[in-house]
């Protein structure tokens, strides 16, 4: 089979590299995994329901939105729709990553897409950018520790929620924006990166203050992506022509 030639280059080294790449993600996500469990119980979830949500949805921001609306006794369909809205950005990740994992089997791809969270997408794009192959072993090495610990943290947080230290003084509530900023900075070599970031930032802040959360994510992202779609190809052509 043609794919065998490519598969020869993947092995235990890929798995080890994936595990190493998962470490900063695990560190950044842990406080939020625990915080989610604690807040879920506070908003009326049982410990089982908190763990079930982390295990089946596996998307931090949308889980936080979900339990918040649940605590406010919002209609079930609206909770489900809000989770969908927060996670709608994954459609874009899915389209981008699909091109990089076309060599995987169908079952492997199902697992891959299930585990496609923000940092996983960013790590896979970073690896692809370096010209390295996104092998199934590397991907699982990078994704599974994050998933397993995320589920375990919901359980720990739900059990010990009331014993949380002062999360504000230790900056725990702000670690995720810092981490996301780090990822944004990592993409700074891409074409028209600064205009895209500037337009997305302004659009998301305006949307946040007008339409409101969670739509600022989709609206802000769309503004930056449209800017790139309109201007990037012509800039690239110009550079190649020179």
């Amino acid at each position: 089979m043609a794919t065998d030639i490519l598969n020869e280059r993947t092995g235990p080294g890929d798995l080890a590299q994936g595990l190493r790449d998962s470490v900063p993600v695990v560190v950044a996500a842990s406080p939020f995994g625990i915080l989610f469990g604690a807040l879920a119980v506070e908003n009326g979830f049982t410990v089982f329901e908190a763990v079930l949500m982390s295990a089946t949805i596996f998307a931090g921001a949308s889980q936080m939105v979900g339990i918040d609306l649940f605590g406010q006794k919002v209609a079930p369909w609206l909770i489900v729709f809000s989770i969908f809205a927060v996670n709608f950005r994954h459609v874009l990740y899915s389209a981008a990553i699909g091109r990089r994992i076309a060599h995987w089997g169908p079952i492997q791809r199902l697992f891959g897409f299930f585990l496609l969270v923000d940092p996983m997408f960013a790590e896979a794009e970073r690896r692809g950018e370096q010209g390295k192959r996104i092998s199934f072993l590397w991907y699982m090495g990078a994704a599974l520790p994050v998933y397993v610990l995320w589920v375990a943290e919901a359980w720990v947080g739900a059990l010990f929620g009331r014993m949380m230290p002062d999360t504000h003084a230790w900056g725990i509530d702000f670690l995720l924006p810092i981490y996301f900023l780090g990822l944004v900075m990592g993409f700074r070599k891409r074409p028209i990166w600064l205009p895209v970031v500037a337009v997305s930032a302004v659009a998301s802040m305006i949307a946040y203050n007008t339409v409101g959360s969670p739509w600022h994510v989709s609206i802000g992202a769309l503004a930056g992506v449209l800017l790139a779609a309109v201007f990037a190809p012509s800039i690239k052509q110009k550079e190649e022509g020179e």
């Binding site: 946040y208 802000g220 992506v225 990037a232």
Partner: peptide, 21 residues
């Protein structure tokens, strides 16, 4: 254009998670 748009996706989306914060 789709390709250029897709390449801009990560920076665009992640920015929207940072800017309002």
């Amino acid at each position: 254009r789709v390709e250029a748009g897709l390449n801009a996706v990560p920076a665009a989306v992640l920015t929207t998670l940072v800017a309002p914060a």
